[in-house]
Amino acid sequence: MRIVIAEDTVLLREGLAGLLEDAGHEVVARVGDAEALLVVVAEHEPDLAVVDVRMPPDYDHEGMRAAADIRRDYPQTAVLVLSQHVETRYALELVATGGGFGYLLKERVLDVDDFLDAARRVCDGGSALDPEVVATLLAPQSHEDALRELTPREHEVLALMAEGRTNAAIAKRLWLTERTVETHVRSILGKLGLPTSGDDHRRVLAVLTYLRASAA
C-alpha cells in the first residue's frame, strides 16, 4: 500500500511510519498538519492516509475534517483516523456514510496485526471502528431499545460486526464456524429490522447506520 501519515508528534509519526514500512508498505509522505496532508494527498493520491485527530493549529478536530474532505474529493484514498480518546459523534458520522474509513484509538497500534488488518480493511473499501466506540454504541439507551432483544452471543457478534470485521474474521475470533456466525448475523439483522441481503461491508454499514440513528 502507498501511505501518507499526518501526525504532529514527530517521534510518534516516525514510529508509525517504521511500523508500516516494517510490514512492507510504502510511506510516501509524512506531514504534521491537516493543510499539508491535503497537499500531499492531492500530490500522491495514496491508497491510505493515517491521520491524527488533533493537529495544529487549533488541536480541535482538524484531522477529522481533513478526513471528510479526502473521502469526498479522493474516493480512491482510504482514511484511518487515530485518536487519543473515544469520540462517537464525528467518527460514526464518517464511518456510517460509506466504506473506506476507519477510526481507532492510538494505542490499537500496539496490537500490530490487528492494526494492519484494519488498515487493509479500509483500503479494501471496508470500515474499522474502535471497540471502545462500539461499546458506547451498544449500551442500550432505553427500555424499548431493540438491542435488549439480543442474546449475549449475538451481542458479541454485533460488536465485532460494528468494528468492521468480516464474518470470517468474527468466526475466527469467537472460535465458531462461519455458518454459525452467519446464523447469528441473520438473527441480529432480523431483530434490528435490517435487510439480510448484501455483502459483509454493506451489512456493516447498515448496522452502523442503525446504531447511529439509535444513538442520535
Binding site: L11, G15, G18, L19, D22, H85, K106
Partner: peptide
C-alpha cells in the same frame, strides 16, 4: 491525552518494533 499518553504510545511502538526486529 496530548502529552503523557502520546509518549506512552510512542514508547509502545518503539518496543513493538524492537520486538519484531
Amino acid at each position: 491525552h496530548d502529552g503523557a499518553q502520546q509518549r506512552l504510545v510512542t514508547l509502545g511502538i518503539v518496543l513493538r518494533r524492537l520486538q519484531l526486529s
